[in-house]
Computed example of a mutant assay.
Amino acid sequence: MESYTPKQIANILNVSTTTLRRYEEQDLIPVVPRTKSNHRYYKSMHFQAFTAIRALLKGYDIPMVYEVMRMIKHGRFEEALWLVNEQQFHIQVEKQRVEEILGMIQNTDFTKYKNVKLNEWMSIGEAAKISGVNTSAIRHWEYEGLVHSERNKENGYRMFSIPELRKILVISSLRKTVYYIENMKKLLNDLDTQNYGNIKRSFQLALENLNNQLLLQLKGIAELMKYIHFFTGAVP
């Protein structure tokens, strides 16, 4: 059976040997054998485990990748694959959301969203529920000057208008692709002035990023299936 030194695998995957050691310490790979002189050496299974980790990390978050690798190490293959499948469902939902909100922006008669009739003014809880974000996120965006609320004269609670809800929806969809506050402020100003060209380009970029993430996820899954093959003998 082919064997590798830590340095050999580190060079192939373009990572440090410290990174490989960290994956081992995090319980992500099978037990590593030692030479008579107590040096680590890796087998083909370990090499594929490392390859799968590096590929998965390009398309998935670190906690999810680590959990999947631990599940596989302990023989919980179906659970691991269902978790991966759940993440792919999330990216599909995110794509649909971006497409829906892009359509919403270009609709001048914005009185409904997802078949929910919008009130002229909404509480922060209502705005959060409609937009699918936490109230803490909306408060943070207001603190950054991205959205604005009025205070209910009777109870002092925040109230958001329909135009501000549109901004919340835009921010929630583009926050992963528009990283700088000033850039987001400019886009929201374009929304106020109905300059939809820049906004449309930003949404198209968001869709391109989601398409790229999907491709990276599928490549990660391909390497993951090769790794599972070492345990099950099934055709990857």
Rank of each mutant, 00 (worst) to 15 (best):
S3V: 15
Y4S: 08
P6G: 13
P6F: 07
K7E: 06
Q8T: 10
I9P: 02
A10D: 10
N11L: 14
I12V: 15
V15Q: 00
S16F: 01
T19Y: 04
L20E: 04
L20T: 01
R21M: 08
R21N: 08
Y23I: 00
Y23Q: 04
E24Q: 14
E25V: 01
Q26A: 12
Q26T: 01
L28H: 03
L28Q: 07
L28F: 12
I29E: 05
I29G: 12
V32Y: 02
P33M: 10
P33T: 09
S37K: 09
N38R: 08
R40T: 09
Y41K: 13
Y41E: 05
Y42S: 03
S44Y: 04
F47M: 14
F50R: 04
T51N: 15
A52D: 07
A52C: 11
R54Q: 15
A55T: 02
L56I: 06
L57S: 05
L57G: 11
G59Q: 02
Y60G: 00
P63K: 00
V65C: 09
V65K: 01
E67F: 00
V68H: 01
R70P: 06
M71W: 02
H74E: 15
G75E: 05
G75L: 09
R76Y: 09
R76C: 08
R76M: 12
F77N: 12
